[in-house]
Design a binder for these strands. Structure first.
Lengths: 227, 227
DNA sequence: AAAAATACACAAAAAATTTATGACGGGTCT
DNA sequence: AGACCCGTCATAAATTTTTTGTGTATTTTT
């Protein structure tokens, strides 16, 4: 969720629209009190802050946010018509993470937002995860959780789960799984996959049921409806 | 320590001088290879990267840095004469944290550097010391403590530990560790890593268990849950 | 509906792979 | 020379993977 504090309705609507088009959740506010109230309700992931406001200066808002424990680390990008170097320095030195002078392009704004979010919330390693029902997989950590409990999987079990989770709802034949995960190319009869599916289900406990057997065809994880 | 990659000597010297005047340690490099070499030696806190370089494009340098585990999180500010919105978007979307178009003012540059350092290291707490369980590393002093006891590590052991501690929870394959720590052109056995992990674990005593073996994949430090 | 056939689940042993360990020799620095 | 770091190897230990056999559920045939 991204919040924006900006008194001019035109700019505000334009930016909020642009953000939503890029897949962000976004909400705009006209006055500092309205923003404060919203922050009490829900802390946004990032704040776009106009520098020049009729009542309370944007800089004052920033200082307040920075001095309150809950919002001390809130990523803030200042947006403003005041584009002199001194203005930028003032904004940044008071705790803003970025400072964009109007007029700015939508694409640049989006990119800067993404860059800041990336830096703040650690783009891949921590965030990157796959979930299905009670199962969560963190690929870069090679960790799997089922109903909150950490599960220790062997390599093949892990590969198998990842394969199924990455293509949820899709049915894989034993042969295609052997080819993809084992790299084998032979078509000979083998119960190898079955055995791994079994151990995998066992280790996943209740979540094991999310791996379905499609009789006569193969296996799949989830039916696409569950998130 | 801040590094700068910039082919024009005039700008380079000017910026390095400005940085030093502001109390930063800084060093400039003329070519990508020189930068890479320096990074092998010491990882800087931040990198200023010129976009247009005669040999290798700045963007290529950025991509390389972002794809290597050791420098994936290195804060990077791009500095460049190319100031169109598309250029900025391109730089930011490829992993740069900020993008400043020339000509830029020294004060703005310093402020942006400070803002990024603030965001990255949270008021410089992280640079001073890294902790995981009973292990504490002081990178600036090259000192390591395990359960309060000082531990004497050899260079490779230290590099290995630092690598794992800086990316806790992340799994590293032997190959990627060899590439990052031993250098991209190291031709030796990947079992070499095992041996160093062993000596490292030994020296860390009980804390050695924090370095986990992920069978079939590699090693990692901490499971993300421990702080 | 009963019988036969098929496909899968389960269990445990056997085989294969991967990692830990101990030891050695070359190299470097003091 | 002595101490130490580094990379390699052989072997032991640990764990995973595959094979194999048996039981059970489901589908097909009669």
């Amino acid at each position: 969720m991204i919040y924006m504090l900006e008194d001019e309705e035109g700019i505000r609507n334009f930016v909020i629209y642009a953000l939503k088009s890029s897949g962000f959740e976004a909400e705009g506010f006209e006055t500092p009190p309205a923003l404060y109230e919203a922050i009490e309700e829900e802390l946004p992931e990032l704040l776009l802050l106009d520098r020049m406001l009729p009542e309370e200066d944007g800089l004052e808002v920033l200082k307040k946010l920075r001095s309150a424990p809950g919002t001390r680390k809130l990523p803030v990008i200042m947006l403003t018509a005041k584009g002199t170097e001194l203005d930028k320095v003032e904004g940044l030195d008071n705790g803003a993470d970025d400072y964009i002078a109007k007029p700015f392009g939508t694409m640049e704004l989006i990119s800067r937002i993404k860059a800041l979010l990336r830096r703040t919330y650690g783009s891949s390693a921590d965030t990157e995860k796959l979930s299905l029902g009670g199962i969560t997989v963190y690929p870069s950590k090679h960790e799997v959780f089922a109903d909150g409990e950490k599960v220790n999987l062997t390599l093949k079990e892990y590969d198998l789960l990842l394969m199924l989770m990455r293509n949820r709802g899709q049915v894989f034949s034993r042969d295609s799984l052997l080819r993809e995960i084992w790299g084998y190319d032979f078509a000979g009869e083998s119960r190898t996959v079955d055995v791994h599916v079994r151990t995998l289900r066992q280790k996943l406990g209740d979540c094991g049921e999310l791996i379905e057997t499609i009789r006569g065809v193969g296996y799949k994880a989830g039916d696409g409806s569950i998130d």
